[in-house]
């Protein structure tokens, strides 16, 4: 059974532990600016929302890549960027309709969530269980909703 990240904004306090865990795991420094998961602050409403790649089945980023630098990790289902192959053309960053592939100007490559190979550091770090790593079926409904949101034009 594939697992996926379940994000529950109503539990988020905006502490950014997830961003630090992510950046430390991937970059070796505590650096929210380089985090693959981001917490969005809805200040006037007093709400927070962690958000990152849903590893969507459409895999817009993967298909848009002109040099096959984004591949599926068969054991986790994650779409992973192979840094050595990425040329930094950024086509995936405009192709991803969720805005979750970002260009890293320091490395000249793109970066996105790779589920840390199956043990996501953000979920470990979240103090309020706003981010959990669960069997995909639990998040099925949300995934369907989000997919519907980007494929079915609303009227």
């Amino acid at each position: 059974m594939l697992k996926s990240l379940q994000l529950e904004p109503e539990k988020c306090t905006g502490c950014l532990q997830c961003e630090m865990a992510c950046s430390y795991e991937n970059e070796g420094v505590f650096n929210p600016a380089k985090s693959r998961i981001k917490v969005f602050n809805f200040h006037d409403e007093g709400r927070f929302a962690p958000y990152t790649c849903t590893q969507c089945t459409e895999a817009w980023c993967l298909h848009a890549c002109p040099v096959e630098a984004i591949v599926v990790n068969e054991s986790t289902g994650a779409k992973e960027v192979i840094e050595d192959v990425c040329v930094g053309c950024k086509v995936c960053t405009i192709a991803c309709p969720f805005g979750t592939v970002n260009y890293n100007t320091d490395s000249g490559k793109v970066m996105k969530c790779d589920l840390c190979g199956g043990d996501p550091a953000c979920a470990d770090a979240c103090p309020t269980a706003a981010i959990t790593y669960v069997d995909s079926s639990y998040t099925g409904l949300d995934r369907m909703k989000s997919h519907a949101a980007q494929t079915v034009p609303k009227t």
Binding site: W60, C92, T93, C96, F98, G99, P153
Partner: peptide, 17 residues
């Protein structure tokens, strides 16, 4: 702009109200 730029495509293509 390098952060989350793809969401512009998403918002356009989903015709999100």
């Amino acid at each position: 702009l390098t952060e989350h730029v793809g969401v512009l495509r998403g918002l356009i293509q989903t015709k999100t109200k």
